[in-house]
Amino acid sequence: MNLIEKFKFDEQKVINAISEECKKKNIDVFLVGGVVRDILINRDCHDIDICIEGNPKDIIPLLGDVKEYIYYDKFQTSTILFNNYVKIDLITCRKEVYNTNGSLPEITPATINEDLYRRDFTINAIAYDILKGKLIDPFDGINHIENKIIKSVHSESYLEDPTRIFRAFKYANRYGFSIYDKESIKNAISQKALDSISNDRIIREITLLCQEECWINNIVSCEEYGIFKIQHSILSAENSMCNYETLNDRLINLFVSIIDENFREIFCNNSILHKEQRSAFKNYSKLIDVTKRKLEKSMDNYDLYINLNKLSINEIKLLSYNKKLFYKLYNYIIKMKNTALNVKGEHISELGISNLRLYSSILNYLLRLKLNTGIIDEKNYLTNNLGEILNVIEYKDR
């Protein structure tokens, strides 16, 4: 099988240019990982990884039509963007050694077979020798693709890198494959393997799970294997305030769905999610109690506005899964959130009001009136009813 023929013309041009320069230097060059897997599964391939038994920085200067590139010396990897906008990851074949389970590995240059051994699953541990035109499949990955099986490359895989647990769910649900290593995954989870990796690494994998089309299945898999418990009535529940096409709203829905408070803490304490989103997650428990009490006492639209206008949109979306709060929150978002007065302090001054302490009282009066009655031109209303407004304010201040 000639895998190069499966690529678009511009991609073939770049791959051939790299392989030609490698051939001149007597460097073996391979397509590896997901790109080989997706071709064999007959899916479109988006990320092209080329692995060489040499250093990419010896090849990059020889290539024409390079628009820009980034080189990572520690890993001897590079990402190259060509003038035809084809992007290639050109990497050194490498061996990984984990000093302790869950740690980041020590890396050394290696052969292609050693490189394939470090990979997560057999379906991702297939290489295509570009110069010889043949597949390299030391772990029976092609057979596992044909039989729709997700299987780790070796028995210690999930303990040495527990993020592979999440990736097993991702690939199984994406391709409709079954997981061969069910007991190995359950054993790793029962041995608290996830405790050996940082919150950042966990939340990064959770985010990737939620980016998948079958994200609900991924979350259910996490529960089935005992990573966390979820409230199924909330997971992907119909909510007109959330758009499940967006990653942000999927994460919000997942957070509210998770019953395990310890796992919720991971959403709050990491450097992967946006600061505003983490803040909303941190405030959630206190927020729902306080807001519920306040909204129960809210008698009109103005009270509702005052209680909600300081909340972020993510905080409001989190609260929207509470059925008792939903209507008021929805009413605020649709009708009140963007309310603004067309009256400024200068307009009040033009009417002869010199007492600055009255300004905020007048503006609050007009805001209450606008929210509760729907007046359109509050500036005109102020001009025509100034005396009445001042009398009401004076009466309230007694």
Rank of each mutant, 00 (worst) to 15 (best):
Y327S: 07
I376Y: 06
E223L: 04
L63E: 04
R357S: 14
K323V: 06
L104M: 14
I216T: 04
I316C: 07
I123P: 01
I258T: 04
E276S: 12
K151S: 10
D10S: 14
R293N: 14
Y284D: 09
K282R: 12
S298T: 05
F267V: 06
D137L: 11
P162C: 05
P109N: 09
I126D: 07
A168D: 06
C222L: 10
E224V: 00
K13A: 03
N372Q: 15
C242N: 03
V29G: 08
K317R: 15
N372K: 15
R174V: 00
A17C: 02
A280K: 00
I189P: 09
G64P: 00
N380A: 12
E68I: 09
N26T: 07
K6F: 11
E20A: 12
I179G: 11
E350T: 01
L131C: 05
S196L: 12
K292H: 11
I334T: 14
L369A: 10
I189T: 10
T163K: 08
T383P: 08
I306N: 02
Y171R: 11
S312K: 00
I59M: 08
G387W: 00
L382G: 14
I70R: 10
N364H: 12
K23C: 05
E245N: 15
A193H: 02
N187Q: 07
N355Y: 03
N199F: 09
A127R: 01
Y244M: 07
A127P: 06
I306L: 10
M299I: 02
R119S: 04
T291Y: 01
I348K: 05
E265Q: 08
I39K: 13
L40M: 14
N187M: 05
N385L: 07
I393M: 15
I41Q: 12
I165V: 02
L40G: 09
H232I: 04
I362H: 11
I27A: 06
I348W: 02
L194N: 04
I150W: 02
N113P: 10
H154E: 09
V343C: 03
K148L: 06
E265G: 12
L366H: 07
R118P: 02
R37W: 01
E378V: 02
D181Q: 04
